[in-house]
Simulated assay, not measured.
Amino acid sequence: MNHEFIEALDELEKDRGIDKDILIDTIEQALLTAYKKNFGSAQNVRVEFDREKGSVKVFSQRVVVDESDLYDTFLEIELDEARQINPNYELGDIIENEVTPKDFGRIAAQTAKQVVVQRIREAERDIVYNEFIEKENEIVTGEVARVSKGLVYVNLGRIEAVMTQAEQIPHEAYKAGQKIKVYILEVKKTNKGPQIVVSRSHPGLVKRLFEFEVPEIFEGIVQIKSLAREAGSRTKMAVHSIDEKIDPIGACVGPKGSRVKNIVDELIGEKIDIINYSENPAEFISAALSPSKVVRVDVNEEEKSALVVVPDYQLSLAIGKEGQNARLAAKLTNWKIDIKSESQDNQE
């Protein structure tokens, strides 16, 4: 190792943000391990890395002890012997002698290179982790790298993310090279580097798409108060405007339905019901069951449950195919909903 090596460390610090002092400390610890492995015990050894020249020296260390306390001559030295070297030595002082092996330079160079390579790898992992941990719960555009055993691997540039079957939109086909928008669900640190899980089925994907598509939502004028989703089939979203002059549903739908259409297209035809949010539970539940008409809503505040009465001809619409409309309405409002027709209600 030489002055050029120190310059290389300076470049690493500048270009990759790897602290030079921490790197040198790591190198010294690695050299100590290398010395112990190749030349015996390192219990009484200190390795010194010259931070200006790049040279390496090894020093043995012995503690100055009283003659009666001498136990190990490799680790200790008598006071009288120490004072023959320097009369100023006292008990407890450390005496160092250089013991650098002749061929230690080659071992040192190999060890330092391994440390630097490993640290660069770790730094790059940290950079990727820090970049994507800030994007957690956000949308990014990636490219499908491959599909294997039900998993979809998505290239996000610096790293490949994974989308499990549970996070895929049912019946959506994924092909290598396909550009897709994904929701960053989780970013984890592992021994092999950052692991990123992305989703196409998470409700957050729909929310973020509306934030990108609708300026009023991005600016906070229109708020998404609640959202329930069954990916690939249907989403219900409750919105509210803090500006009375702005219609929240109209803002989300956009001119001639252009805004919501862009989102529906991105979600491969998923239906999206947009309703007005209300602090009044009966009004909110009634709206949540859209497109069904509602005759009456009886609420039980304590149990947070509601009995909803609908026209006979609207019962199947209110419940929805396989109960989907009622199920999504319950998720959206966070109320337990029981639906009955007018005939059933009258009979009871």
Rank of each mutant, 00 (worst) to 15 (best):
P281K: 02
G17A: 03
Q118L: 11
P248N: 12
K188I: 13
K179E: 11
N280V: 09
L9N: 14
A112L: 07
E303H: 11
I275S: 01
M163Y: 08
K20Y: 03
K336Q: 11
F104L: 13
D338V: 07
A166G: 03
D243T: 12
I272H: 02
I22E: 15
E172M: 10
A228Y: 00
S201Q: 09
N325W: 06
L79H: 00
G204W: 04
V65H: 07
W335I: 02
I169N: 05
L289R: 03
F210N: 10
I6A: 02
V239D: 11
G150D: 07
E67Q: 13
I18W: 01
L317V: 12
G40P: 06
H202M: 05
N2E: 12
E134H: 13
S278E: 00
I139N: 01
D345W: 14
E98S: 08
D72V: 02
G269M: 10
K53M: 11
P215W: 00
L32Y: 10
D247V: 04
G257S: 07
A176M: 07
L307T: 13
I246R: 00
R146Q: 10
G157F: 07
R125K: 13
M163F: 10
E13Q: 14
V187Y: 00
S68M: 12
D69E: 15
T111L: 12
T333Q: 06
L328A: 03
S55T: 14
E124D: 13
A109L: 05
A287G: 04
L156R: 05
S148R: 15
G232K: 06
